[in-house]
Design a protein around this nucleic acid. Structure first.
Lengths: 210, 210
DNA sequence: CCCGGCCTCCCCATTTCGGGGGATTCCAAC
DNA sequence: GTTGGAATCCCCCGAAATGGGGAGGCCGGG
């Protein structure tokens, strides 16, 4: 943070123009930071990263065209040392977990204070990691849980759309008995009391989207 | 919009500091607008409105302490001519409907372009109404639908939390048969295929929250 | 090579739902 | 004062979901 160091070069990726504006003006007020590019979806982010190779990328998760998780994976495939901070509205512990597994160094909420954000940028730039406390807490509550398998997620998604077991079976090309088995596992793993509760829990935790 | 007119006096109400920053810097760039106050929840909004009586209030819906709908109702009880524009992330047609019934003159998404926002501010200040096209479309699809009654919402909320009809009945102090009747009505009104689907539809449309 | 996880399928018994029907009471609005 | 909506309760019945058990095949890591 000494004045002799070059500024932290930052890329912003978010599809909300207003939020980009807010970030941009926040960064403009920090003498040790400079904004090098903006992108409004994952594809643009990839190009912008290649062109500018920023020190820090601030990335939203929900975006059209290419979501933040895929963008993080793609960026870190080409640049394994890229430091990326996810900045999002809350969407459950699973989304955060996926972002971190994809290589994010930070996970923050858009509702946080400006001060915390700039501190996190400096912190991550210095090589540390920073996960918002409430998200860390929620992730910790589920570390011991078995995650849903791909097949179980498929079943649950169809159930969320109103399919009965028999219809799920027909759509997936498997027997109704298999669907029942998957649902039994889902109920157990999510600690849900019935299929409706399971869908609600999965939506809250970011395990499925609708 | 002539330079001789006094500027449009604006109040911002949003719990996201970053978004307030973005709005603030956007307004600062408009010669015919001036920011008179900011608030980060409904209560503060009420006080700020009384103190400053802005021409336009930009209001989020989801906030701690006092939500946007209640804040709109409260403000317009004291100041029936207040012009309020709701600025939110998408949460279903029902939330928009409630905001408009409470007296909002505009309903916009946070993902919109800056240009559209400043145009809407001028438009609403001139006495017109402005609802984002996609929201208007979705609201139009449901104008013919019967809305859920208070009791039906109560039942659906408990169902979403994993209660069986029998348990909903016990919690609400009514008979299971009554719960079944309510659920039948809910399924019909929402066009849902089963209770799980009903909960998902209600969540998407902003009819219930979890 | 063997083990574990995943996916698949099957059986049984009980409970819960969903879709019909109908009925009463209460309150507020016209 | 009648009318209508909301809320309450009741019946029947077939379909669906839940909870318990078991079991075989496949694939990848140790």
């Amino acid at each position: 943070m000494s004045a002799t160091n070059p500024p932290i070069r930052i890329l912003i990726v978010d599809d909300h123009p207003l939020l980009r504006e807010g970030l941009s003006s926040l960064i403009a007020g920090q003498p040790d930071m400079t904004l090098v590019a903006e992108a409004e979806n994952g594809e643009q982010a990839l190009r912008a990263f290649r062109d500018h190779q920023p020190d820090i990328t601030l990335m939203d998760v929900q975006m059209p065209t290419m979501n933040g998780i895929d963008a993080i994976t793609a960026i870190r495939t080409g640049f394994p040392t890229a430091r990326i901070i996810v900045l999002t509205t809350y969407k459950g512990d699973m989304q955060a977990l996926r972002a971190i597994k994809a290589g994010a160094s930070g996970y923050l909420l858009k509702s946080m204070l400006r001060k915390e954000l700039v501190e996190t940028i400096r912190s991550v730039h210095a090589g540390r990691r920073r996960i918002a406390a409430d998200i860390a807490t929620e992730m910790a509550e589920h570390v011991a849980d078995d995650e849903l398998t791909a097949r179980e997620c498929d079943v649950l998604r169809l159930v969320a759309l109103g399919s009965a077991n028999k219809e799920v079976a027909a759509r997936m090309g498997i027997s109704e008995e298999t669907v029942k088995t998957h649902m039994k596992n889902v109920l157990t793993k999510l600690g849900a009391r019935d299929r409706t509760h399971a869908v609600v829990v999965a939506l809250k935790r970011g395990i499925i989207d609708i």
